[in-house]
Structure formats: C-alpha cells, structure tokens
C-alpha cells in the first residue's frame, strides 16, 4: 500500500486537511475520503468529463489528478459551485432548457460550462460545442445542453 500524505487545501472555500494515499486520484479523495459524491466516475481516464472539477480556476478531470497534487490549491466541486450565483444561474438554465435526463453527466457539464462562460462570456454556438467536447452525454444529444449554456451566459 502506498504511503499516506498530509495535504492542506481549500475545498469549496473551506480549508481542509486530509491524509491521502500517494497513488489516490483527486476523484477518489473527493468521493471516498471527503464524501462529496457530486463529482462522478464515468471512465477513469479523462475521456468523459463526468468528474470535471475546478482547480485554481481551471477545469480538470479529477480522475487524472493525484489527490496529493491538491495540496496548497483551491478546489471547487459541483457542490461548491451550486451554492454560488453563477452555479444557481447554470442550474436554473439546465433545468429550464431540459438539459438534464439521467443526470449522471450533468455535474461535470455544469462545471465545464462555468469555466467556459467565465473564460469566454461571448462564446457562440461553435465555441460552446468545442468547450464541452470533453464531456460525454448519452441521453440528451447535447442540443439542450448547448442551449442551456448559451442561456446561462
């Protein structure tokens, strides 16, 4: 078994100190150590975006990030975003535009959308499509997700 490492980081605005195994992913830490389950496991190799989180402002796949690499950084998950005005706006837009079906990909898409909008508030349809190319959805066919993001800007 790998050594445990003490890390100190900010999670959704709250300082956290945790001991994590050196080989653990940030995804496993969030779900199994911290107990925040909004960040989803979809593939474990960065191909589906269900585990999208924000670290120091940018979005990453939590499954590709070492938990130890959270040390000293600012991490935001869907639970944190949902409690902010931009998160509320995105949620309302996803709901209103019918962008949610089974909902398993939704937290990752909302996270990615928040980053996309923040970075490029004037994003048009093509830029929104490109912006979510790393998030797979099996239910909606993406159309309503694209509309929801456009509607939340």
């Amino acid at each position: 078994m790998s050594a445990k490492v003490e890390i100190d980081f900010t999670l959704n605005g709250v300082r956290e100190q945790r001991a994590v195994a050196a080989d653990m992913s940030a995804l496993a830490m969030l779900r199994d150590v911290v107990g925040l389950t909004g960040t989803k496991y979809g593939c474990g190799e960065g191909e589906c975006g269900a585990c999208t989180i924000r670290v120091d402002g940018v979005t990453l796949n939590a499954c590709l990030m070492f938990a130890v690499d959270c040390d000293g950084r600012e991490v935001t998950t869907i639970e944190g975003l949902a409690a902010t005005p931009p998160g509320e706006k995105l949620r309302a837009s996803f709901v209103e535009h019918g962008a949610v079906q089974c909902g398993f990909c939704t937290p990752g898409l909302v996270m990615q959308a928040s980053h996309l909008i923040e970075k490029n508030p004037g994003a048009g349809e093509e830029e929104i499509r490109r912006g979510i190319e790393g998030n797979l959805c099996r239910c909606t066919g993406y159309r309503k997700i694209i509309e929801a993001i456009a509607g939340a800007k």
Binding site: L36, T39, A82, R91, G103, T106
Partner: peptide, 21 residues
C-alpha cells in the same frame, strides 16, 4: 407545454445520489 423535469434541480446541483454514491 415545456415542463422542466422535476428531478433536474437536484441532478444539476450534484445532489442526486445514484447507486454509486
């Protein structure tokens, strides 16, 4: 009418507990 799904707010907040959770 265009009626939003009742379970969508929970899902879009990451609060829905799937079996995995």
């Amino acid at each position: 009418k265009r009626i939003p799904k009742m379970d969508a707010p929970e899902k879009a907040s990451g609060r829905t507990r799937y079996l995995h959770d």
